[in-house]
Design a protein around this nucleic acid. Sequence first.
DNA 1: AGTCATTTATGACCGTAGTCATATTTAAGA
DNA 2: TCTTAAATATGACTACGGTCATAAATGACT
Lengths: 210, 210
Amino acid sequence: MTMVIMYQGENDLSLREKKKIETRNKIFDVSARLFKEKGIENTTVDEIVKEAGIGKGTFFNYFPSKTALLLYFAQQKEELTYNQIKNEALKSVSTREKIINTLVFVAKTNEKDKELTKMFVFEYMRHYGSSEDERKSRSLSNILYSLIEDGVRKEYVKSTIDAKKAAEIISAIYFHSLMEWLWSKIDYSFSDDISGKIGMVFDGIAGGRT
Amino acid sequence: MTMVIMYQGENDLSLREKKKIETRNKIFDVSARLFKEKGIENTTVDEIVKEAGIGKGTFFNYFPSKTALLLYFAQQKEELTYNQIKNEALKSVSTREKIINTLVFVAKTNEKDKELTKMFVFEYMRHYGSSEDERKSRSLSNILYSLIEDGVRKEYVKSTIDAKKAAEIISAIYFHSLMEWLWSKIDYSFSDDISGKIGMVFDGIAGGRT
DNA sequence: AGTCATTTATGACCGTAGTCATATTTAAGA
DNA sequence: TCTTAAATATGACTACGGTCATAAATGACT
């Protein structure tokens, strides 16, 4: 039974935990630098551990795979982005505009680091439904879901609409269009493209007949 | 200048070409068996070449990568499927029904070999825009495009609609929903899901306000 | 049949992600 | 301070996809 009561300010971490954080940060910093310097594909785990001054096994103690490290990067960025989205959505009134602005905003932040984005979209696909990372990989869907529910309340969206399904189709369109845009050789406006498509979803494509 | 004119029936292939076809088929047969027996991921190229009685290098003479073999499988299946689609679409009158039936039909054939389908969807994502396989990977989009253009002519679809964009959003929804369905633990009706979503696209989700 | 150029086959070899038995470090109690 | 259990670090090793220089097979021509 321990009798030691610790009064610690900035220093309430054991040596172990401090070293753990240090190592994790070291891996993160070194790989961030290498990824920028020579691209993700061209950076090997061996290089990372050599530059970080740790053993190879250690890397895999912290990240179960190279992919896990990438996902960690992507997640960090995603968190930053999604925190800004609320402000972005507030800039407009109608649900349609809110959704378009949100998607364009996310796309723009993604454009800044195309390679990482590609990697993320790719890994998002690969690890689809692998249970643990559901919260984050579904978060765009969740944001859209809130916007649509809000839209139903304010009558921007039909009350008969299944908000969950609607959020799904919009995020499907977003991902697909983003891929098309990221990998496309020809340069076109993502904003215009996505606006047009969201417009179709709002107004429908049905003609006179049924 | 050759004076030999060959009248050949079933046998107009040189020894080389016969052996080539034989080897290709051997690889195809063996890997098909192994994939079924122990799954795609668990089947290595080394195993395939060992069972096929060929050298490892030979495999890569026929398929530049393991992925290429997978894509070959997927392509074979896709061809079969897409040939049947026309009949499927003819069963209904309205464009809406035609599209739904087409997608449900494709989904059903995919369901028969979930693992291969996952692999294909996955590879479809990975090799997105890698120039060479555009014709086939875009073929669902093309079919949808034709259906929509036809729909515009028959007034099932608004004449103001950009058929290309519409085809894109529908195939985006299809792929996304298919993934959701393939990887989902809970069992639900894909037909119902996709019908609902296509319905939304036709009728629109917009409410009273703008 | 003999010669030679072209096509195809081959397996030793390589790069890289990931594993695991063993060694080292840390925390905590006596 | 000494002992011991648990956490952490480590690098030799494995597995696997893919490469490449070299060898064998094939076909065209004489």
